[in-house]
Write a protein that binds this DNA or RNA. Structure first.
Lengths: 152, 152
DNA sequence: GTGGGTGCAAAGGGTTTGCAGCAAG
DNA sequence: CTTGCTGCAAACCCTTTGCACCCAC
């Protein structure tokens, strides 16, 4: 990502502002989707008096213009935002520590074709979330189980 | 589904009430997930003075006890509720008419195993939504396209 | 200078909660 | 009789909106 924020905004036909600049910086610096609140918190370190509604307005503009993506995951009832890196991907969510990880492999191309034929639908897209325990949390669970066995 | 609502409540360890009875009736009678509001509307036909908060409270109880399922789909920012019929399934959503259809086939067992091995995660569940146009809406879109061709 | 972006506060939509009264066992 | 469910209204959280002001071009 060597393009300047100004160029990026111009490319997506969005006017420049300091606030937009800062939000692009924040989105660039994270590898995972963020809530508006998290972005807002980071903003306030950079811009005095930045308002949460501005964050929402900017994020919505970015999503409309295709610069950012908005995701609603089942576990949180807040929207998550991230830079649109034009990758098809899915999310792997840890039920223990709530960590969200990207998965880039996708097993669904063939399945979409099948649904298309079976159901007569014209398939446009899909969304897949996978829930489980990350290696660290899996380990902790193992430890608890072993403790319980030792005490019984 | 030949079990009475009373038996069903007892089985899930939930006390009987007229309101709970009515909501089970409603959930039984629909084949697709419903919003609290839709359930509420149906309730009011059956119970005088039924309150929306009661609907939410009952639905949350049902979900906690395993009698019902709650789904948050990307398109609506409302929760959807349905009877827990103990089927593994996914949803196919029409981008034209917002119709939601169940799919019972699932292509992900093998994929989950793969993720488990590659990422070291212990996979518990997944959620898949497929977006597209139903046969009727696809047809309408075709018509519009043909109209445009005819006029050009 | 002008159009559009911003801060602030207030409103919006879905959902939850506190409390007094009521119903089920 | 007692427990806990209900109705109502108010609160809650996330998100959007109205308006006056200000900034980028």
């Amino acid at each position: 990502m060597n393009i300047s924020n100004r160029e990026m905004l111009k490319h997506f036909n969005i006017k420049y502002s300091k606030q937009r600049d800062v939000i692009i910086d924040i989105l660039k610096s994270y590898r995972c989707p963020l809530t508006a609140e998290q972005i807002y918190d980071d903003c306030r370190a950079a811009v005095e008096n930045m308002s949460l509604s501005t964050v929402y307005r900017i994020l919505n503009t970015f999503v409309d213009k295709g610069l950012a993506l908005k995701t609603n995951l089942d576990v949180e009832n807040k929207a998550l935002f991230e830079l649109n890196r034009h990758e098809h991907k899915h999310h792997l969510l840890c039920l223990g520590c709530s960590k969200i990880v990207q998965i880039s492999s996708c097993p669904l191309k063939q399945y979409e074709k099948q649904i298309q034929e079976e159901m007569g639908y014209q398939i446009i897209s899909h969304k897949l979330e996978i829930y489980g325990y990350c290696p660290e949390c899996s380990k902790e669970i193992d430890n608890i189980v072993h403790d319980e066995e030792a005490h019984s």
